[in-house]
Write a protein that binds this DNA or RNA. Structure first.
Lengths: 186, 186
DNA sequence: GCATTACGTGAGGGTCCCCTCAAGTTCGTA
DNA sequence: TACGAACTTGAGGGGACCCTCACGTAATGC
């Protein structure tokens, strides 16, 4: 690839990240090209479809979820591992609307992206299973409950600012915990 | 008003309800006119602006919140009054995306609509204050927490179906309650 | 039944976006 | 330096939507 082409590709990815974060995955491609300082034709040269662009952008960002999983596994306390994982995931999803849409399926994902999302789900299930095994979380809490919890608070965070979901999450954790009196405030 | 004009106005409102429920308050006006079987010009004759249409449509629907409040006041148990109110509100908001957007401020509301929303908030605050007074809810739960809770679960319900928010709400209520062991399952 | 006028119509101008492609430009190499 | 391949350009056709307005139609009161 020619040097100028590589530079353009990089700038396009960078600006795409901005636009998708702000406007979601349906954001304007012409806007991305404008911000990157190239013509719309160049954008289409590098990424023939919107999905090609999304596909080049999101999977690397999903790698962060693997890190959260590693952190959770390294944490000796199963409850803290679980809550930390959920908090990390939420912080990450609320900061990137495009990522959130990919996760929640608002946009029909490419195979590669779908695979990355599935791995995230599997990771979450593992962290949750450990908490269940340790008896620190109610046994009737399902994987889907947690997915929905993350989903709901992510959508809230996108609209109501970062601190809104953090307070709510505290209450929810207290509802999910088996030994609430240990840590509950008030 | 001429009879045919009244009929057209009714049909427009009816179809607007459908489109706004499906697509949100930014839904297509041309689509509304198409569904109502009138020309776009007729729509503009009756409702010169999008907001005029929204304003004719939503405030009556917000009246339902007053009913929920009355129900809550009639309920002797302060905790059940509170939870029932929240459940009613959620069921109502998740069924109507337009209403949800009006509440959450996704659309700049008219004065009349804003007033109706404010009344809803005041009602909620009263129900919550009663629960606080009765000591059945944690004292550190703020009005804003509950607004955010309703907001988050409404957004979820819009995307993940009606049962998703109901299960989560159960867990949250357990986290908000002071005497959890009384009713908590598992 | 007729005139009046309230009402309905839809083409059309404006904006934004998607995507293509023929022509022009620049890079890298020999 | 000069050439060919690689890359960029942006006008333009197509679609959706917003909103207006000059004109046609038909409901209603007399």
């Amino acid at each position: 690839m020619r040097r100028d082409a590589a530079r353009n590709r990089d700038r396009l990815l960078q600006e795409a990240a901005g636009v998708f974060t702000e406007q979601g995955l349906a954001g304007s491609l012409e806007e991305i090209a404008r911000r990157a300082g190239v013509s719309i034709g160049t954008l289409y040269n590098h990424f023939p479809t919107r999905d090609a662009l999304i596909d080049a952008l999101l999977p690397p960002r999903l790698a962060a979820v693997d890190e959260f999983t590693a952190q959770a596994e390294a944490e000796p306390d199963a409850w803290i591992a679980f809550t930390g994982f959920v908090e990390n995931l939420l912080a990450h999803l609320t900061a990137d609307r495009g990522l959130l849409e990919a996760f929640t399926g608002d946009h029909p994902a490419s195979a590669r992206l779908a695979e990355a999302c599935t791995r995230g789900m599997v990771n979450m299930a593992a962290v949750l299973e450990r908490a269940r095994g340790a008896g620190v979380i109610r046994p009737n809490v399902t994987d889907e409950d947690i997915v929905n919890l993350v989903w709901a608070l992510s959508l809230l965070g996108e609209n109501a600012g970062p601190s809104a979901w953090q307070r709510l999450l505290g209450f929810v954790f207290d509802g999910l915990r088996t030994n609430r009196d240990t840590n509950a405030s008030a």
